[in-house]
Design a protein around this nucleic acid. Structure first.
Lengths: 131, 131
DNA sequence: CACATAGCCGACTTATTAAGTAGGAAATAG
DNA sequence: CTATTTCCTACTTAATAAGTCGGCTATGTG
């Protein structure tokens, strides 16, 4: 489970939105709460908005908020948007005796995917997740 | 579970050694059996030998073989040698509401580590692993 | 001993990705 | 109208991955 800074920031930003009272949260507040470089965060929020995970409003009193309730938003939703489809080693198959290695990767991937699709931001914010 | 080509090659090379009858296996044979660039493989085998996972002999009839029985050699042994210590996002901690995210990473890491330290190359070559 | 085989070793190249920056345009509340 | 805040493209810089190169060293065979 390699996790890039970009993905990490995205998850923390969304967590901030999930924890905030209803209404727009400006990027500045997210950036300072989570120590995320401001310009970089812009970039990330833009990507999340284009994917439809969050909404936004410009101008004074503007900001970002979740497009769906935190109960319906999982870690996997965000990770998928930021990282795209996860690529596992499958390049040409595993010759001969190495074949069974592929099944190990599959097992790992499935466990990882299951956990990430089960944990919602509502659980993160309330410190209740199934790990 | 991001897996680099280098690590992938290393695991497949060791699998070849685990599957071979006793005696040295030349790098050429491993390279052709697993479609690994020959020069690159040299490089990787050197690293495995320096770490003490395999032994080698030069000259005609030379090659590589496992330093321990395949029953005592796990996927994690090889991965650790190639990738070094796995770094999980821990850079400075997770401020405020993002704290619980760290526990998710921990859960993922522990599961991954458990699986990789349990699967031996003996299991791989005999297609019996606990996944 | 000579020669072929095969491992040993550090340095180098090249491509891709990650991480973050820059500069300004456009919208909106007061 | 003005301050605020998002929107958007493009750029830079550093690190890592993947593989290459050239030549040296050891070893078994005849």
């Amino acid at each position: 489970m390699r996790i890039s800074a970009r993905t990490d920031y995205a998850l923390r930003a969304v967590t901030e939105l999930a924890a905030a009272p209803p209404g727009p949260v400006p990027a500045d507040r997210i950036a300072s709460a989570q120590n995320i470089p401001r310009r970089f965060l812009d970039n990330i929020l833009l990507q999340l908005r284009r994917a439809g995970l969050i909404h936004s409003l410009r101008g004074p009193e503007g900001g970002y908020w979740l497009a769906r309730p935190a109960e319906d938003l999982t870690l996997a939703d965000v990770i998928t948007v930021i990282e795209g489809k996860p690529e596992y080693p499958e390049h040409g198959g595993y010759p001969g005796v190495a074949g069974p290695l592929a099944e190990v990767w599959t097992a790992l991937r499935e466990h990882e995917e299951r956990l990430l699709t089960e944990v919602t931001f509502a659980q993160i914010v309330s410190s209740r997740f199934s790990a």
